[in-house]
Write a protein that binds this DNA or RNA. Sequence first.
DNA 1: GAAGCGTTTGTTATGTTGTACCATCGTCAG
DNA 2: CTGACGATGGTACAACATAACAAACGCTTC
Lengths: 159, 159
Amino acid sequence: MAARGAVQAHTHNHKACIEDALATARELCTERGVQLTPLREKVLQIVWKSHKPVGAYDVLDELSRSHKSARPPTVYRALDFLMGEGLIHKIESLNAYLGCVEAGAPHSGHFLICRKCGATEEIVDPKLETALDQAAKRASFRAERQVVEISGLCAHCAG
Amino acid sequence: MAARGAVQAHTHNHKACIEDALATARELCTERGVQLTPLREKVLQIVWKSHKPVGAYDVLDELSRSHKSARPPTVYRALDFLMGEGLIHKIESLNAYLGCVEAGAPHSGHFLICRKCGATEEIVDPKLETALDQAAKRASFRAERQVVEISGLCAHCAG
DNA sequence: GAAGCGTTTGTTATGTTGTACCATCGTCAG
DNA sequence: CTGACGATGGTACAACATAACAAACGCTTC
């Protein structure tokens, strides 16, 4: 199995990566007694097609090929479900969605977004978690959700 | 003068706070040889009316009172200018804009957003900066911009 | 003061992202 | 059977943002 949390978008076996994500999603939904319907699974698959965040309307375009009746609410409902189950994240600075590499563990994701190639890596970094918690604590703030999106150039594009 | 970087939205003298921000903006623009026109200054003032992020269309509504010809591009151009000069920040998770408490020092802002009262505090935390830089570095990523938006409950609303 | 230029603003239209709302359909418990 | 619930179908619209071009303004130069 591919290492999680440190996926190298430019070098890994992506087919296995998608399969892995879908299998994990199926397991989690079964455990939780929620329905990963064909529609939802298809949307999850579309989001996982690359390691680049994908817009809701791009999902819609792709989804329309197999689900002619798909409309914006169709997509947003599926995306909301998937986010609720922690299977995807929304990248706020791009208004786009990305498969979660740590599905099952409830968390806000932290992302490195390459502005050149678009590849976006979800990082899991305990030190960063701690620093964020501490920063909130110092301000007497009760943190519930963290949006951390660092954009710049990935190792590949920075050359 | 109010402490910067640790403004307590529920307790401070906000009139002085706005005046201070506008004065700083005027100085900076003069130094830089860019024009803080009446329109731009008015938009800056509107954004600073509270410590809550304000949407572009809310700015438009308010701006329309004095500038009848104001349209969406009017507002977005002013907001773009103000962001370019580092006088305001965009809160990506809310699609809204907030006055910058550290105008003059180029930086990505880090924010604590109360989901109950909406008050949003820009924090300046060197440890957090370092943790973010380190996280990017560990992934061989060349960071250019950081979006850090922590939402939850402020000290006031958490009781 | 007229011509040329860059910056700012006016103006219309449109593109992109996201939701409200109600109808329909299937499944399952009572 | 029927009522409740979750999922999907479908229409319309709200909210956020930009493209493209015209007009006005200040400045310099001749």
